[in-house]
Design a binder for these strands. Sequence first.
DNA 1: CGGGATCCAGTTCGATACTG
DNA 2: CAGTATCGAACTGGATCCCG
Lengths: 227, 227
Amino acid sequence: MPAPPEYCPVSMGAEIVAERWNLLIIRELLTGARRFNDIHRGLPGLSRTLLSQRLRTLRGHGLISAAADPTDGYQLTDAGRDLSTVLEALGSWSVRWRFPEPDGAQLNPHLLMWRMRGGLAHDRLPPRRVVIEFTFTDDAGDRPERVWLIADGEDSSVCTRDPLFDIDVFATASSRVWHEIWYGRRSVRESISGGTVRLSGEKHLVAGFVDWFGLSPFAGQVAGRPT
Amino acid sequence: MPAPPEYCPVSMGAEIVAERWNLLIIRELLTGARRFNDIHRGLPGLSRTLLSQRLRTLRGHGLISAAADPTDGYQLTDAGRDLSTVLEALGSWSVRWRFPEPDGAQLNPHLLMWRMRGGLAHDRLPPRRVVIEFTFTDDAGDRPERVWLIADGEDSSVCTRDPLFDIDVFATASSRVWHEIWYGRRSVRESISGGTVRLSGEKHLVAGFVDWFGLSPFAGQVAGRPT
DNA sequence: CGGGATCCAGTTCGATACTG
DNA sequence: CAGTATCGAACTGGATCCCG
């Protein structure tokens, strides 16, 4: 913001919030990202150069700080963490007024997998490496897109290329269906039992699958959720 | 925002909120401004050209609409009005983390008077024109700045030049003191009785003065408020 | 009063290449 | 992995003038 803001609480806050990407960077940190490249992955369209700049100005505003161990990246300060109140108000507002069902171009399976990775319940996963292959069947024309999710203890990652590990669970559904699930518009359990999501693999892993994933923080508020 | 936002509630909201001025324009409308020039007065630093553009995009987003009578300017839609939840969260956050006492350069008596005008309790004013002359005594070096507030029924205005009306009440205090009062850091009543704010004029008008003005929406939350 | 049109300066940003 | 440096393109926004 070029000119210093008016002495008014809303203007003071707008100085942070009205700068592109700032809120989204905070969101990434609030949802668990710490390292530069992880933050960057969650923000398609943001260049590394600009992310670097923004992190600096956010540090200048006292919203984030470099972690003690530099390889741990960044962490939110108390002030930064408290921005969650604003994020919640904003997300809730959007859900009420500008969150219609996505059109096809808005579906981004890779990014969605990255969000779902963030919501993994590591403590409910088996205490060993688990590899899941997701096949997205959105468009019959293209060859179906595939993404691999690898969870191992506290670590997890998402790959676009075959990691060449043994696959524990194969999951097949449209990207749209996964979006509906993530945003609480559709129940995972019913989607599996109804065959909309098809799973295969070792029996007890397939049985556990449904408990591994969380939902979007706004899932409870999105219109069109299952009856 | 150039690229279409991610399909995510926070990103959808950020598309509005992360565009400069948008939140402040909404604030002006929420606090009673309707006409183009009134909105503009509350936003120093914003050019008319840009305000015009922003009003158009906000209309495109369905947050505001032109009033039925064109001379009535703009009004918020339901969606726009509901942004008050976000404004409140943002203002509260700022008050918690980035709202220290202002330094001298941040004090803007004219703008403050404009805000106080918005908070006038017209129903407590006498049912005729009332003219108040405010004299700001911040800096002994300069000649003290003066601003006139004219209230008449439902109408009210703020002038920088002597309106050449008879003055009903003269109010003398520093701009800083008025800021402290507006943000709830100081009690009007005590400031008057203690002589920090000096009033003169017709006796019953001076007695009523204290009830004519409201406080900032965030007054109750600002640190350093009177004991 | 409430803008629209034009022109131009300043700023922002992405791409690319490079460093530790 | 986590940035920095540089450069040019694109965009933003203010000034000015004009219109109904």
